[in-house]
Computed example of a mutant assay.
Amino acid sequence: MGYFLIGVLVVVLFIGNVIEEANGEISPTVLSKIEWMNKRGPYLGIVAPNNFELNPLLASQAYVPYPSLPFIDFAGRRFRFGKISNQRVVIVMTGLGMVNAGVATQLLVSLFRLKGVLHYGIAGNADVNLEIGDVTIPKYWAHSGLWNWQRYGDGIDDELALEAPGDYTRDIGYLQFSKYTNGSDNLLNRVWYQPEEIFPVTGTPEVREHIFWVPVDKSYLNLARQLEDTKLPQCVNTTCLPRPPKVTIVDRGVSASVFVDNAAYRTFLRSKFNATAVEMESAAVALICHQQSIPFVVIRALSDLAGGGSDMSNEADIFGSLAAQNSVDVLVKFVGLLPPYGSKIQSE
């Protein structure tokens, strides 16, 4: 009878933990692990988009997993603990798109003691003057997928729906679809780009602010300038790039939950926003870190000329793995430039 009661108790406790996790709550077991790891912080948070970019980092000799507790699983994410160079790090994979990236980053900064966040991976390229394999570190990031889609027949001088109360604006600009037709009337009219509503931890709860271009941390950016002479591999087997890839500080990157494989839109993003890196997660990471007052920087290697048109066919298929490895190599080198793990870099 005693064994039976113990068995029932175990089942009840197990079901209780499952219910807690299903409701999004932190189980006592997971919470105790988080508290135990936070006593050993602060950590440098590292955010990877997916396995394609995560696995080269995990396989790198630079990454040493924490032996006693190499990871904590929570909310469908795996938070990995270890060291890179002189830094204690916690690594998380986001998954595809802005929502996944925002959720994963918010969990990271809310659950763990962090002194900063590094985001890395590959990106499409909008600057024809750069090459596949180049690693870009943009100064600013914007979410380019928040639009007010204007009614057919309205013009650029007509007020947008809900513009008067401050929900939307025409200040940033628009994309007019009729510029990209073959002569027929285009019912799609135009979309106006919108800033994000944010709620900074330093602000008043539920009092919104707006931001479009999110700046990366200036101190991180200054450190990144030391990477511009980094030597990076040029070839995949016997197929080589026209020149060795380089690390370069660029003006802007844009993100949206849209895979851009269209040359016309790439050209528009370049001419309108002076964007270089075009991808699907970084702006979400930037927005979360900005609101939480966490220093951050983004390292994105160019895997293809978005929409095609480069001298090489199937460029992403051939050089995607090289670009992913380049982003990891630059990330590891950047981590090595940071102060010891117990200190916090001074943001400017």
Rank of each mutant, 00 (worst) to 15 (best):
T181P: 11
L118W: 02
V90D: 00
P339Q: 07
P245W: 11
A75F: 04
N222F: 10
A48W: 00
D157G: 06
N55C: 04
A75W: 10
K179P: 00
V207C: 05
R88T: 00
D261K: 15
I294L: 11
N314D: 15
K139R: 14
Y63I: 10
V207W: 03
G342P: 00
A263M: 03
D157F: 10
R113P: 01
G95A: 12
Y220A: 08
N129M: 09
R77K: 15
L13I: 13
Q291M: 12
S255M: 08
W141C: 07
V135K: 13
I345E: 04
A316T: 10
F199A: 13
R300H: 09
T276L: 08
N23V: 00
Y220F: 15
E206H: 11
N100E: 11
R225I: 01
M37H: 02
L269M: 14
N51M: 04
L9N: 04
Q234E: 12
V236L: 02
H143K: 12
V278Q: 13
G97H: 05
V201D: 12
K179D: 14
G308V: 07
I19Y: 11
F112C: 08
P165T: 05
S144Q: 11
G342C: 05
L5E: 10
T276M: 11
G16I: 07
A123L: 07
E228M: 15
F112M: 12
